[in-house]
């Protein structure tokens, strides 16, 4: 049994500091904590996206470790290359990690990630999911949920915002029979940190998908980032799960969900949603949970 990581025993050293992310950015918190747990001997690969845009502003460099900006489509490939290089040079006790956004993972970087998992490369891949292309000004991505207003899926008389649903990235990755995959939320940080710690000792590829609210893109006050990410899990629109040894495991199975309406009405991107749209979200949620509760271990 691994020792539990809490706020008290987490290192005080910062490896991701002085970055220019918006105030209250959930994604930067996910990267910050992951770097703390992985430690100084980490090689980070970041594609175009918020996290590279806020940390590599010449002459600023917010990472205290080695980090590189990759072409947009190749986070998985670059991280795999770094891992291969480390192995060839005989540099041990290191981690090669990728930090990509939702678009960089589910749309543009999908084949590079798929290739890395297929080869079983020794990398840890983080998908920091803020549910749209935030860095370029909030465009819809494959992980944008139904009913989200973005600049490329505007809400109006004819459309409720995004009409597509969130791509099921976690199960797409699991379908590769990956060594370790997990979903997390910045609302449940102890759970997230435990999963990062677990990924450190995995032989093969690990994938951690973390839901990270974006105050700018979601139209929320900056201080509610953490509580909103918690509410996303509590209302059932996001879930905490793991996949290892060919088995799915549901980490949190709430007895009753909090109302979806309370969650969506806090956010500017969902402000236009009608009761019918919210019912649609609830139907989708119930369908998903019915399957998860039936088929997955608890």
């Amino acid at each position: 049994m691994m020792p539990k990581i809490t706020a008290k025993n987490l290192t005080n050293d910062e490896l991701f500091y002085g970055h220019k992310a918006c105030g209250g950015c959930g994604e930067s918190l996910a990267v910050r904590l992951a770097m703390k747990i992985l430690g100084e001997r980490t090689f980070a690969s970041l594609p175009a996206g918020c996290m590279s845009a806020v940390s590599f502003i010449y002459p600023n460099m917010a990472f205290k470790t080695n980090a590189i900006i990759t072409p947009f489509a190749s986070t998985g490939a670059v991280a795999a290359g770094v891992a291969a290089g480390l192995k060839a040079l005989g540099i041990e006790n290191t981690y090669s990690v990728g930090f990509a956004g939702d678009g960089g993972t589910a749309d543009i970087g999908l084949q590079a990630l798929s290739g890395a998992i297929d080869r079983g490369d020794q990398i840890i891949y983080f998908c920091n999911d803020n549910e749209a292309y935030m860095n370029t000004g909030i465009q819809k991505s494959g992980l944008t949920p139904y009913g989200t207003r973005t600049t490329t899926s505007p809400a109006g008389e004819n459309l409720p915002g995004s009409v597509t649903t969130k791509k099921n990235m976690f199960e797409i990755v699991a379908a590769h029979d990956i060594a370790y995959a997990a979903t997390a939320s910045v609302g449940y940080l102890e759970d997230y940190m435990m999963k990062v710690e677990k990924a450190k000792s995995v032989k093969g590829t690990s994938y951690i998908h973390i839901l990270a609210p974006c105050p700018t893109g979601w139209g929320t006050p900056s201080e509610i980032t953490i509580s909103l990410a918690k509410e996303a899990v509590d209302c059932g629109l996001w879930y905490l799960a793991e996949y290892e040894n060919g088995e799915f495991k549901l980490n949190k199975d709430p007895k009753a969900f909090t109302p979806v309406a309370d969650y969506v009405k806090k956010q500017g991107r969902f402000k236009h949603l009608t009761e019918t749209d919210i019912e649609h979200l609830e139907t989708q949620r119930d369908k998903k949970w019915l399957k998860m509760r039936r088929d997955w271990n608890k």
Partner: peptide, 25 residues
């Protein structure tokens, strides 16, 4: 803290106001 500006190395918590963005989390 998304910016990691709170220091816990001493017996009381201290905020690095150079890098705090005031998000209020």
């Amino acid at each position: 803290c998304p910016d990691g500006v709170i220091d816990k190395s001493s017996d009381r918590l201290e905020i690095d106001y150079d890098f705090c963005k005031g998000c209020g989390v």
